[in-house]
Nucleic acid binder design. Sequence first.
DNA 1: TGCTGCACGATCATATACGATTTCGAATAC
DNA 2: GTATTCGAAATCGTATATGATCGTGCAGCA
Lengths: 229, 229
Amino acid sequence: MSPTEADTLSKSQQAYRWIKERIANQEFTPGYRLVLGSIAGELDMSVVPVREAIRQLEAEGLVTFERNVGARVSMVDDSQYRYSMQALSILEGTATALAARRLTADDVRNARRINELMIETLEHFDPRAFTALNQEFHAALFEKCANPRMLDLVHAEWARLGHLRDSTFSFVPGRAQESVREHENILVLIETGAPLGEIEKAARRHRSATLDAYMIHEHPDEALGLPAF
Amino acid sequence: MSPTEADTLSKSQQAYRWIKERIANQEFTPGYRLVLGSIAGELDMSVVPVREAIRQLEAEGLVTFERNVGARVSMVDDSQYRYSMQALSILEGTATALAARRLTADDVRNARRINELMIETLEHFDPRAFTALNQEFHAALFEKCANPRMLDLVHAEWARLGHLRDSTFSFVPGRAQESVREHENILVLIETGAPLGEIEKAARRHRSATLDAYMIHEHPDEALGLPAF
DNA sequence: TGCTGCACGATCATATACGATTTCGAATAC
DNA sequence: GTATTCGAAATCGTATATGATCGTGCAGCA
């Protein structure tokens, strides 16, 4: 046999990934009509697995579905991005605080290493790579969150953002320097055993600041409409 | 024709509701094996819609699914309840703060009315009714949240809790009095235009306190394991 | 007795087929 | 010229059928 790489993958899951990838690639832009039959033909399978895949995507909010009409890629405007970012700032801030006391010296060292990598890449700045490292850094901090439910929510929100934009720092490259400084600051708070409230606030503000930078850069005219904390 | 009541409902949705109801009713207890064929037979439909329904429920976390094996009602132990409550305390706290500035005098009046209803029912205490009113009260406060994404998350978490326990106050009836007092306190904070941080903290603590009461009542021996803020 | 392997039953996964609903355009009436 | 109705094509919703996979119990052997 030649189970090239997707042998252990059910067709529904194949379809799921296939569609998701196209959406992430902007190949299927928002509003794009997802026709069961066509996709099934394209993937050389019947419509049943495709249906299931689309329902999953619907549950994640990536596509909207209307009965007897069909599915289309969800409309994602800037406001959704902003809202998701704010939600993430809340969730991630709390998750980071809930993980702080459980981080070992090694964990902190590792996070710092990632942050130093980010500093290095600042010279020949690559937004995509920087965004990826950024995610890695924060994951290192909140992954040990004492509350798995919070962790799930954080992951879900990260995934959601990943679909809306594959690189935040493409939009606000200037924010990168400030960002790594704040990272170090958070690390110090964790190391010195600062009150959890402080850590939460710092982590939350850190992300809010990225959002603010984005807003000022992309929509300088609009008011944020989102109260700060 | 006799479209008794479910004419406009697709079979997948019928199945979805049917199963969900059984789970809520404890008729399908955690660990219960959901067999596609049996359910399909019971509902007099083919397995296809049932499959879809189960996948939806899976996405919501109500059932777990294993390939080529089947679905079963998710195990929900106390810890999950606790984690969910804590997540809700965070989300709801923030949502309440994000809604505070948008509440009109009427909104506050309405919320206070609900709270007074809760006070009245304290005499002949009915946990179910009290819990329902409690939800109504909080919904009145956070429903105008400026961030719809946060609102979605709050709703989802409420729904999740609804499945785990249909009445929180069955477990800690003594908490009710304290609860309505804190409600009034939150209302005053909103009316007087307290800083959003204060409102958030109060709302968060309010729910945390319910969780603590539950813990002390049900698991006095266990440490919370969840740091307070 | 205890373990290995096989075969059977239960259940899931997918394909194909058909009926149902919606959408869109063309023909007709005004 | 515009509005309305009718009909066909596209697409979805579900049923039925068949192959694939997993769990389990029994038989055979050490």
